[in-house]
C-alpha cells in the first residue's frame, strides 16, 4: 500500500498521507476550512460543530472534512454555494447563542470565531436569528483561570484535553439539547472538583470560555 495519496483541493494538487483526515491535510497546506470541535490526535472526531463541510466529487451531499479520510484522486471543493450556505447558517446559529462582547473577551484577537468570520467574510453580529437569552454565571474558583459558559460553543475540546491529555476527567457535558453545558461532575465549582488546575483546558478552548484571569479585559 502507498503511504501517500494524491488529491485535489480547490484545483490544487496535493500529496497527502494515506489515512489522514481531509481537514488536517487542507490546513497543513494552508487551505483554511472553518472548524471548532476537531482535535487532530482524536481518532474519531466529534463532528459536532458542523462547520468543516466540503464537497467531494462523486458524493451527493456535503461531508464534514474532519471525518473524511483522504482517498487517491479525491477531488475536493472547500467553497460552493451549498457549502457557504451551510457554513453561514451553522456559524450564525452558534453566534445566536454566544455572548458577543468581544471587547471584554479575554480571547479577543485570538478567537477561532473571529478567524472564521474573517476567512469567510461572515459577520459576527448576525441578524437572522434572535439572540438566545441565557443566565450563566462564571466559575472563577480556580486560581489562575476561569470558565465563562456564555462564551462556550460546546466544541468539547476542553473535555478532550481534560480526559486524554491531563487524564483527569473533571469536566464533561451535562444536560441535553438546548440546555447542554460543560460542567464538573455534579455541577460543583472547578475548585471543589477533582480538577488539578493543569490549565490544559484553557489551552484547548478555541474561544474565550476557559480563559486566564490575567487576560481578562476591563
Amino acid at each position: 500500500m502507498n503511504d501517500y495519496v494524491n488529491i485535489t483541493i480547490d484545483d490544487r494538487k496535493i500529496k497527502a498521507r494515506a489515512g489522514e483526515k481531509l481537514l488536517w491535510v487542507a490546513l497543513d497546506n494552508d487551505i483554511y476550512i472553518p472548524h471548532l470541535c476537531a482535535v487532530r490526535e482524536k481518532e474519531r472526531s466529534n463532528a459536532s460543530c458542523r462547520l468543516c463541510f466540503v464537497e467531494i466529487e462523486g458524493m451527493a451531499r456535503p461531508v464534514t472534512s474532519c471525518t473524511q479520510v483522504v482517498r487517491e484522486e479525491m477531488v475536493v471543493r472547500t467553497r460552493s454555494t451549498r457549502i457557504d450556505r451551510l457554513v453561514k447558517t451553522a456559524f450564525e446559529l452558534l453566534l445566536s447563542d454566544h455572548n458577543l462582547s468581544c471587547r471584554e473577551c479575554p480571547a479577543n484577537g485570538n478567537c477561532e470565531l473571529q478567524k472564521i468570520a474573517k476567512e469567510r467574510g461572515l459577520k459576527l453580529r448576525q441578524k437572522r436569528f434572535k439572540a438566545i437569552e441565557r443566565d450563566h454565571t462564571v466559575d472563577d474558583s480556580p486560581d489562575e483561570f476561569a470558565f465563562d459558559p456564555s462564551r462556550c460553543v460546546l466544541c468539547g475540546r476542553c473535555i478532550w484535553a481534560d480526559r486524554e491529555e491531563a487524564g483527569v476527567g473533571a469536566i464533561g457535558f451535562a444536560n441535553r439539547g438546548i440546555n447542554s453545558v460543560i460542567t464538573t461532575f455534579e455541577g460543583v465549582s472547578l475548585a471543589e472538583s477533582i480538577c488539578t488546575q493543569c490549565k490544559l483546558c484553557v489551552e484547548a478552548c478555541p474561544v474565550g470560555a476557559f480563559y486566564y484571569k490575567k487576560d481578562k479585559k476591563a
Binding site: A47, R50, T89, A90, L94, R176, G177
Partner: peptide, 11 residues
C-alpha cells in the same frame, strides 16, 4: 429530544 451535540439540531 435533541441530544444537543451538534449545532444545527441543538440551535
Amino acid at each position: 429530544e435533541s441530544c444537543g451535540k451538534c449545532t444545527f439540531c441543538r440551535l
